[in-house]
């Protein structure tokens, strides 16, 4: 690990506009610092600035950025009204990591692309302009949607996929004031600047994640992975779906393991809304979702896998 300066923030204001890297749970950052993939000159410890409460906000909920993943997953309100969030959190990592990982930090976790995590490999995300060893390399875990010729990495998390389906909003503080970023627009596609995972600016601090009023209906998080526990998703499907009189009254879908962002497609949600569920309808939805999907060789299997995972989730959610 490269040497760094360490200091502690007392309040959110101490952290806003700072050039130091913020550290809270540290489960991803310290791992990458040991690999010298991350080499911050200074760390600012924000674990003692508060932001660790879950409060009712209208019919919704405001979850502080420093609430641990474990506390969020166990919260009785979240379990009752936004069970998709509990399910997605519990599908990820291990209990030890969830105890340490925070809500805000989890959103900022970096890709698990093996070339990104290996300093000897070409990686435009780690070292812009160095190339992408994953293209034409071992790319079984890589993106099938929204990739670029510079980067085919995936966003690895589960929680943000559920938050995207649940229409959550990320709250931040910048030197010029607070702002809100819809979860669906928090992460960004790689384009020709894959070094930037999301739309946070330098010195911007995540303060909370808010959930709107409960969506109701069935909420399913289906994660397909190489082993039953403690593995990243090959593909995952988050669904919040409500039926009325035999038709899909509302549906919000998000997909993990397939892109540089939790993947959402409003057209797919719209195609399903108002329709009677059937295998043919689910197939049409998958056609639209996968219209521009492109495999990289080793990950070609993700295209049919996502199609089947979506059909299985829609069948379960609609009772079809």
């Amino acid at each position: 690990m490269k040497a760094f300066d360490y200091s502690r923030a007392e309040a959110t204001a101490d952290a806003v506009g700072q050039s130091a890297r913020l550290i809270a749970g540290g489960t991803n950052l310290l791992d990458l610092m040991k690999l010298e993939v991350e080499t911050p000159e200074a760390l600012l410890d924000i674990t003692r600035i508060g932001l660790n409460a879950i409060d009712a906000e209208g019919e919704g909920l405001r979850i502080g950025a420093l609430v641990s993943n474990s506390d969020a997953a166990a919260d009785p309100r979240i379990r009752r009204d936004w069970p998709l969030l509990s399910r997605a959190i519990l599908a990820g990592a291990s209990p030890q990591l969830r105890n340490k990982a925070t809500m805000g930090g989890n959103l900022c976790q970096r890709t698990r692309c093996g070339y990104f995590m290996d300093n000897r490999s070409a990686c435009n995300k780690r070292e812009p302009g160095s190339g992408c060893a994953a293209i034409g390399g071992v790319n079984r875990n890589h993106a099938i949607l929204g990739a670029s010729s510079d980067c085919i990495a995936t966003y690895p998390g589960d929680m943000a996929v559920a938050l995207s389906a649940l229409q959550a909003v990320v709250h931040t503080e910048r030197p010029e004031g607070a702002r809100e970023i819809p979860m669906r627009h928090f992460h960004r596609l790689p384009g020709d600047t894959p070094q930037q995972d999301n739309h946070l600016e330098s010195g911007e601090v995540i303060t909370a994640i808010s959930l709107p009023a409960p969506l109701g209906g069935r909420q399913i998080y289906r994660k397909v992975r190489d082993r039953a526990s403690y593995a990243f998703a090959l593909v995952s499907v988050a669904a919040a779906l409500r039926m009325e009189e035999g038709r899909i009254a509302s549906v919000h879908l998000a997909f993990g393991g397939v892109a540089h962002t939790p993947w959402t497609n409003d057209h797919v949600d719209e195609l399903l809304t108002g329709e009677r569920p059937s295998p043919a309808l689910f197939d049409k939805a998958a056609d639209l979702l996968l219209e521009d999907a492109q495999g990289q060789g080793h990950n070609d299997f993700k295209i049919p896998l996502l199609r089947r995972a979506l059909a299985a989730v829609l069948a379960e959610a609609t009772g079809e």
């Binding site: 360490y6 550290i23 489960t27 310290l30 791992d31 410890d45 474990s70 105890n99 340490k100």
Partner: peptide
């Protein structure tokens, strides 16, 4: 690297991977 759990200790009643945590924190 927080993958094996051999370093698990209990901090304020909660289990964590002590390898992925700084003593100073």
């Amino acid at each position: 690297h927080g993958q094996c759990g051999a370093c698990t200790v209990i901090v304020n009643g909660r289990r964590i991977n002590s390898c992925l945590s700084l003593a100073a924190m």
